[in-house]
Amino acid sequence: MKPIYIFLLLCFAFLIYSFGIYFSPTEKGMSNNEDTLNIVAKGKMVWQKYNCQSCHQLYGLGGYLGPDLTNIVAQEGKGELFIKVMVQSGTKQMPAFKLSDEETSHLFVFLNEMNQTGNSDPRSFHIFSNGMIEPNEK
């Protein structure tokens, strides 16, 4: 078989795989409310605008200087007020960000929605004998 045909065959398989992912059903735990999802999208833009990913992670993906924030809102005493205070006062490592009240609120909705999608704690995974891992039900 000519190399170009193998190349085209693999490209075709890749396109099918990619479009399968693009049009896959919405994930579990996400809100069905369109208004909420719009705010979630705005909150995600706040996350990107202030480059939170530079230091923080979501599901272990992101920077390494600060803690993973996937399930931060589920931790005791770490609700909207905690996030507001942390963001605006900063820490020794983190600068104090000047977020508006609206931005803080959107960021919280985003983090809250992220928390609903699953658990990022590696201890919560089950390891199978074939080497695969699966999340335990939350």
């Binding site: 190399p3 193998i6 190349f7 693999l10 398989a13 890749f14 795989y17 992912i21 896959s24 994930e27 579990k28 735990g29 599901y59 272990g60 993906l61 999608t117 699953g118 990022s120 590696p122 995974f125 080497g131 695969m132 891992i133 699966e134 999340p135």
Partner: peptide, 30 residues
Amino acid sequence: YFIGFFNLLFNWGHHIYTLPSLPYIRYIGY
């Protein structure tokens, strides 16, 4: 070359084993 290309196209799932994405992505990546 084709093994490398095959990996370019389909092995990226190993970056997101802990993400609650579709299970087949994890298996294909692995």
